[in-house]
Design a protein around this nucleic acid. Sequence first.
DNA 1: TCATAGTGTGACGTTTCGTCACATTTTCAT
DNA 2: ATGAAAATGTGACGAAACGTCACACTATGA
Lengths: 239, 239
Amino acid sequence: MNTQSRRQREFEQREKLFLDTARNIIRQEGISALTMDKIAEQTEYAKGTVYKHFSCKEDILCGLCLDSLGLMYEMFQQSLTWEGNSREKIICIGVGYQLYTQHFPEEFDLLIAARTNNIREKASPERLERMDQVDTLVMNAIRAVIQLAIQSGDLTLKQGTRIDDLCLGLWAMSFGMLVLDSARDLITGLELSETNALLLNQMSCLLDGYQWHPLSTEYDYHTTYKNTFQHLEKLLAKD
Amino acid sequence: MNTQSRRQREFEQREKLFLDTARNIIRQEGISALTMDKIAEQTEYAKGTVYKHFSCKEDILCGLCLDSLGLMYEMFQQSLTWEGNSREKIICIGVGYQLYTQHFPEEFDLLIAARTNNIREKASPERLERMDQVDTLVMNAIRAVIQLAIQSGDLTLKQGTRIDDLCLGLWAMSFGMLVLDSARDLITGLELSETNALLLNQMSCLLDGYQWHPLSTEYDYHTTYKNTFQHLEKLLAKD
DNA sequence: TCATAGTGTGACGTTTCGTCACATTTTCAT
DNA sequence: ATGAAAATGTGACGAAACGTCACACTATGA
């Protein structure tokens, strides 16, 4: 009975060890340097043991994404507690997303890659399933703020628009901006404002378009942005 | 002299043959089934010859993306000629983007993957360079419409916002929506409107937020959407 | 007609993957 | 304490794919 749970615990610890090692290799040498043999060697386990945990290399990548998503979820939960009106809470979530991508560019890169068939074709169904679940949790965090906004009267959905449409819209805008911005040096010849102003401005326009009150003309969200930024940055620094 | 140019032509034709073959393999068997040996075998050339054209597998993927981007650019150029106000032109571009992703999901998948270090770490610098160039062309198409809108008085940029910020915002929203939507079945538990309405609604809100006239309250863009959709779909059907 | 430059080839060495039969350790009933 | 059985860990191995390169073949033009 007791040994059962100990075994389980050891198994989970080892899984964590493998993932941490993989993460380090990617951070230090890039994703193409990640091999199963290297993970085995650095952890001083045999390759077969690694395969007891992960069905293939892509499965490990998804495992790393799962960790990332979990971290992101925690941060989003933090954002929900931010004191302020509903729009400020949404901004706080956006800032969290942005900070995350800036602190963990490699992980974000993986998150993008994991939306790609390249990876999904190979990863194990179980882990893909788990990723969906965390995805849903993250979505729920956003959904909660939207519902709050509707309840408090800050937001009235237009005819034919659903809550989840808005969820996806906000997510899409943030995701898109961060993907494109993370590859900003690729897009040569673009004359952009500085990164931080970019996301806030675009989100402000979108939220104004939704008629989510108070509008950016009625309220100073730059201050909100600065404050949430500092707040969340402190949280991140703890790691 | 003459033989020179003939050689050159033959070389380009063969490159196209390799790419077409690769595309077919991906479409039929998925990206993980793509191997250099398979391309060589199917084209009845030796592997060494394939490597005369592409430095590695990832380079081929980028080659496919280049083709995709070229096609997209052509479609965007078409959109610029759409008769209507500046907002309708932007919508036409968005619709083009959407149709593209729906018609060529595999290619779109590659476009996403090609923004990832996974691929970029390995592809040849020359081809990455060329991709940037086409990226820039595509951006220019969007930029042109924004400039038109400003000139015609439909749009006035807010203080501190640049044309390229708006470019990126529009691109980000569309890209984000299409990425997330292309993986829509992943995000279980989401209750979304149908795909087509989604992008239009979100773009409408964003454009309203920019105060890009005529606003969606003053003009029926659903009709525009339908018309542009049909128009571009005909163009695509020609292939 | 033949020397030469240019082009194409596929066998080969290397890397990495993923497997599996066997070795080692742990457990638990006696 | 002991040993049989169950659980766990190992790493040698075969297969698959990559990318290279010395050589073979072909085209060119003097």
